[in-house]
Each structure stands twice: as structure tokens, then as C-alpha cells.
Simulated scan of single mutants.
Amino acid sequence: MRNTARWAAALGLTAAAVCGPLIGDAVAAPGAAPSSLYAPSALVLVTGHGNDAATATPERAVTLNCAPTASGTHPAAAAACAELRGVGGDFDALKAADGVMCTKLYDPVVVTVQGVWQGKRVSYERSFGNACMRDAASGSLFAF
């Protein structure tokens, strides 16, 4: 019984350390009121060269937190959060910029998103023909 209690305590601490930032203080302190009324929105965005995430070489990764305020290592966190809110978190609904002209040079890039958007887990992957096409299609979200 004593070992079971130790494992439970260790696992509880691990869950709080890993999930606490994503789902609030309720995991870290059962019965405590959440520290925020906002659903969590914490994402890790990665971009790299290649046709898909499994074979691509990651080049850059940033974090993006959108609730209650925009933060993270993303260089344009406020703009990226505003774009995501504008499409309801639907990454495929991001609009291509008007008037952007890209070469047809094929140098594929892939972007991935993992995390939580407004309290729901998200996993997204999309390939583009080149970096210009990625930037034109995703606004400021993948411009890092």
C-alpha cells in the first residue's frame, strides 16, 4: 500500500508538471478554483523543409499562448492569436494574402501544430510548395 501511494504521488506530480500549464491549476490542486475563466490555448508550432512532418527537417519551433492574452516565443503572438480567433481555430480556414506572388520553385516546407486550442486538443499538419506559399497562405501564424 505504501508503494502505491508513492507512485500515485509521483504520477500526480508528473501530471501536474506536464498538464498544469495547459489545463490550469485544477490538476495541480484538486478542489481549488481554476486560476482563469478562459479555456486554455497553448500551441507549439514547427516549420521545416520536407514533404511531411515524418521526413522533414525541423528548422524552427515556437510556442503560442492565446488566453487570456497573447504570449509565447512567437514573434507576432498577438497577430497570430487574432488570426486564429478570426477563423475559430480552423487552421485550414486561414486566408491567403491578396496580391502575393510566389515562384513555382518546388522546395517543400511543412508546418505542424500540436497543443490545445480553447480547451480542445489539436494536431495539424500541412505541406506547401515553398516558403513563400506557406507565408502567403498562413498570414502571421507561421511567419517565424
Rank of each mutant, 00 (worst) to 15 (best):
V18G: 06
A56H: 01
V27T: 07
R6N: 07
T14E: 04
S41H: 00
A33C: 04
S41I: 00
A8I: 14
A8T: 11
A28V: 03
L64S: 02
I23R: 03
P40N: 15
A16N: 10
T55R: 09
P68D: 09
G72H: 08
D25M: 15
D52T: 10
V46M: 06
T57R: 15
C66L: 03
Y38L: 02
P34S: 11
P34W: 06
G20N: 01
A32E: 15
G12A: 08
Y38F: 13
G31Q: 09
G50M: 03
A56T: 06
Y38W: 09
V44G: 06
P34Q: 05
S36Q: 11
V18A: 10
G48E: 06
N51A: 14
P68R: 06
V46T: 14
P34H: 08
W7E: 01
L37K: 03
S35D: 15
T47R: 12
V27L: 15
V62G: 08
L64D: 04
A42T: 05
I23V: 13
A61C: 09
R6I: 13
C66Y: 03
A54L: 13
H49L: 08
L43E: 00
G31I: 09
A28F: 01
A8R: 12
G12M: 13
T55V: 12
V18S: 07
